[in-house]
């Protein structure tokens, strides 16, 4: 039961045949080899698979690839531009906001949506914005600092 879809990912358009049940996360990882989007759970809890769908953070493990037909998707691979890290990427490195790196793409993607609507958040707001993303390494301490640091850079 195949469906043809066309999705623009990180600025490039892809047309592929997918099964109805193919999750957007699997589509990105398997069909497009964009393995920066990670899958950490099966109940939409961990947020490692977060990407931007038409500019909004979504859990790509809970969206069917067919639902994204005609949409624009941005993944972690599309964040750096012209070889320059996105401010969030730079701040995660600067503030040691990652250890194993597995949750990091999801953290960065959700933070980019969050900062778009709340460019100058306080610490508590940042913590609450990460409700849908688990990190087991950092205790979130430096992730919070990294997002604050990126917010400062981006609104400067």
């Amino acid at each position: 039961m195949s469906n043809q879809i066309t999705i623009k990912v990180n600025g490039k358009s892809y047309t592929r045949e997918v099964e109805g049940r193919t999750l957007l996360a699997s589509f990105l990882r398997e069909d497009l080899s964009l393995t920066g989007t990670h899958i950490g759970c099966d109940t939409s809890g961990c947020g490692a698979c977060t990407v931007l769908l038409d500019g909004k953070a979504v859990k790509s493990c809970t969206i069917l690839a067919v639902q994204a037909d005609g949409a624009t998707v941005k993944t972690i691979e599309g964040m750096a531009e012209n070889g320059n890290l996105h401010p969030l990427q730079a701040s995660f490195k600067e503030k040691h906001g990652l250890q194993c790196g597995f949750c990091t793409p999801g953290m960065i993607m959700v933070a980019s949506d969050f900062l778009a609507s709340n460019p100058k958040p306080n610490e508590q707001e940042i913590r609450e914005s990460l409700e849908g993303n688990f990190c087991r390494c950092t205790g979130y301490h430096n992730i919070v600092l990294a997002i604050k640091d990126a917010a400062d850079t981006m609104s400067a």
């Binding site: 990882r29 080899s33 393995t35 920066g36 993944t75 691979e77 890290l85 990427q89 490195k93 793409p105």
Partner: peptide, 22 residues
């Protein structure tokens, strides 16, 4: 010192086992 491994990890270029295709 800032971490050397971070560049690949913040850009989605980490190579975890499930990322490998043969």
């Amino acid at each position: 010192v800032k971490r050397i491994e971070d560049k690949r990890l913040v850009t989605g270029k980490g190579k975890y086992t499930d990322d490998i295709k043969i």
